[in-house]
């Protein structure tokens, strides 16, 4: 009975999953890395929703953040660089009973995996997607990423990067059949948790852009985020991601926004004057989900399949 809330006494679960039931190895990320905060909040989310670890799959590509599945005591798939989306799509296509999460980084998603990213948005398969964007390649030791700001100094651009960065929100909002786009930061646990929760609730490809710190290779950004509270705007909408009063107070600025209006969402995403709009930018609950199609004809018996094969062979009989 442990953990059973007094106000819901009707369904008694076989087992109550505690945080430890989702914790596997001790993470090997650097101290101060934003990944730790996301992991903690995801484990909390799993516990709050009492997700069955055997029915939960964390899928990732390659990069610092893509080590994530190794730290979850659920099923996991730590695959290839840039290829988390096709694998996750294949897993979910015919397994509506599985809860699929995708972890990807700015290099994994926006560079080597950009083609798959675009199509995963269009497929709109039901999965919770977290893009950990620290604007730098960490695992390969400090190279410029497609989301690095102009002037970023790294091992591959020692005199400062010259290309303008990709804006993942703008890109995602530009793809047909986009259904859920939100933005959060790794250092505001309340907002992070609320955003992940909303993403998990959404049926479809829930894309969460996590603005993230890399204290080792982007220490200046960490300072900027810490001191630049003016830059973060809380998106307010009662139907969107709602924070409690105390959490709201951590934001100096806020903005009213209709997350069903894609043009308004695109305007926020494109407002690049150093502002970050945190919360739900866009949601379309009616977008078509490819996994609905994927699961529409399952469970045929061998006898049914034999019948079709026999018919097909008979069509070619001579």
């Amino acid at each position: 009975m442990f953990g059973l809330k007094h106000d819901i006494a009707c369904d008694i679960p076989d087992k109550y999953y505690s945080l430890e039931d989702y914790e596997k190895a001790v993470p090997r990320w650097c101290p101060g890395c934003g990944d730790h905060a996301v992991l903690t909040n995801i484990q909390k989310l799993c516990r709050e929703k009492q997700l069955d670890p055997a029915k939960t799959v964390f899928v990732s590509g390659i990069g610092c953040s893509s080590r994530f599945p190794h730290y979850m005591k659920t099923y996991g798939f730590h695959g290839l660089h840039g290829r988390a989306f096709p694998v996750a799509s294949g897993i979910k296509f015919r397994r509506p009973d599985l809860d699929v999460f995708v972890i990807t980084g700015d290099g994994d998603c926006c560079s080597i995996g950009a083609g798959a990213w675009m199509h995963a948005i269009r497929y709109n398969i039901n999965m919770t997607v977290m893009l950990f964007n620290n604007e730098i390649y960490g695992l390969t030791k400090n190279q410029t990423s497609p989301t690095s700001r102009i002037g970023t100094k790294s091992n591959t651009s020692p005199r400062g990067s010259i290309l303008p960065p990709i804006n993942p929100l703008q890109t995602t909002l530009g793809i047909s059949n986009v259904s859920f786009v939100a933005q959060t930061v790794d250092w505001n646990p309340a907002h992070l948790y609320a955003t992940l929760n909303a993403a998990h609730e959404h049926k479809g490809f829930s894309f969460v852009h996590i603005v993230q710190r890399c204290p080792v290779f982007q220490p200046d950004l960490v300072d900027e985020f810490k001191s630049g509270k003016d830059a973060f705007y809380l998106i307010k909408n009662n139907d969107g991601i709602v924070l409690d009063e105390n959490a709201e107070k951590t934001f100096k600025n806020s903005v009213e926004h209709d997350h069903t209006d894609i043009n308004a969402a695109r305007n926020l995403a494109e407002d690049e004057n150093g502002k970050f709009y945190l919360g739900l930018l866009y949601q379309n609950k009616d977008a078509d989900c490819y996994d609905d199609y994927g699961a529409h004809n399952m469970g045929f018996t061998a006898e049914q399949k034999m019948e079709v094969l026999n018919e097909e062979l008979d069509k070619r009989a001579i």
Binding site: V57, L80, R83, P86, R94, R95
Partner: peptide, 14 residues
Amino acid sequence: IAAIGFAIGASYAG
């Protein structure tokens, strides 16, 4: 690439 990735995902899932 995505074609085989999808197939591997489906295989992994059962």
